[in-house]
């Protein structure tokens, strides 16, 4: 299990996966972001996907949500092939997914309350009094019930992220995708969030996918970790497995070492050639 994962010995960590990706390839122009990636997300667990900035973690979430289509390969969510769905079926599937965007992506013309109420109002016919109860409940869960009347422009970045989380769980989805939930949080709200993600996952029987590079926090709540770099899964396993891993990749990432096999740079021609030619290519 702990050998650097070659596709041949890839084994799903659980029998009943919610999301499976098989030989997934995706590129943006010349830049190949994924090369035959294989990945399995177990049901009912917190799975973290980690990797250096720019490796395509956000892109991976977008592929799962069906916002973009892979060039080759297959993505299945709950047995349904996401990129072969029509718009109607895709929307049906998305109602069961909550997504926390990296930027929060709150609706700037709606108040905090209306932002959280938005999916409820769009997809249910609940009476306003019940919506109010539900919204305040979700806001209470992220600790921002007192801020319900504020507009998004009046929130700090971290607060906005928490409101977005409240909105993502408004419809009680079966699966939540978190894109960098911890970025920009102070230690206290970080701790609250970590606990919240875990509690939500267990209490509501959710499946959570966390994309993050906050190794310590993520390792603390994740049941299973994937490390991706350079378009492929470099390593996967439970946090304990990975922290004792002998692999230099894992070691570098898990212990935040600046030097190692994992590149911090965006793909580029050798530095000297760039400097010598004088024009950035």
């Amino acid at each position: 299990m702990l050998a650097i994962s070659a596709r041949s010995d890839f084994a799903p960590p659980h029998d009943d996966p919610l999301v499976t990706m098989r030989r997934l390839s995706f590129s943006r122009g010349e830049h190949r972001i994924f090369r035959e990636l294989d990945l399995t997300i177990p049901r009912g667990k917190v799975t973290a996907i980690m990797g250096p900035s720019g490796t395509g973690k956000t892109t991976l979430l977008r592929l799962i949500g069906g916002q973009i289509r892979p060039d080759a390969g297959r993505i299945e969510v709950d047995g349904i092939c996401v990129h072969e769905l029509g718009r109607k079926e895709l929307y049906q599937l998305r109602k069961r997914m909550g997504v926390l965007f990296q930027s929060g992506a709150l609706f700037t013309d709606l108040s905090v309350f209306d932002n959280v109420a938005f999916p409820l109002r769009e997809h249910t016919r609940l009476p306003e009094s019940l919506i109010r109860t539900l919204v305040l409940m979700k806001l209470e869960a992220v600790g921002l019930r007192g801020a319900h009347a504020l507009m998004p422009s009046q929130l700090s970045g971290g607060m906005a992220r928490r409101v977005a989380l409240a909105r993502a769980i408004a419809l009680d989805p079966t699966m939540i995708l978190y894109d960098e939930p911890f970025a920009g949080q102070d230690p206290i709200s970080m701790g609250v969030l970590v606990k919240l993600i875990r509690t939500l996952n267990d209490a509501l029987d959710l499946t959570s996918i966390i994309v993050s590079h906050d190794v310590k926090e993520t390792a603390a709540i994740a049941d299973y970790l994937y490390l991706i770099s350079d378009g492929q899964v470099v390593e996967h396993g439970t946090p304990q497995d990975l922290s004792h891993s002998a692999s230099p990749w894992v070691d570098q990432f898990m212990h935040a070492l600046p030097d190692g096999p994992m590149s911090f740079h965006y793909p580029a021609p050798p530095y000297e050639t760039d400097l010598l030619t004088g024009t950035p290519s």
């Binding site: 997504v99 992506a105 609706f107 769009e122």
Partner: peptide, 21 residues
């Protein structure tokens, strides 16, 4: 700006079509 700040994308991910909405 709604596109730039991913508001339309997040709406789509909430299964709300921005065209009618």
């Amino acid at each position: 700006l709604m596109r730039a700040t991913e508001q339309l994308a997040s709406m789509q991910m909430m299964a709300v079509d921005p065209f009618p909405r």
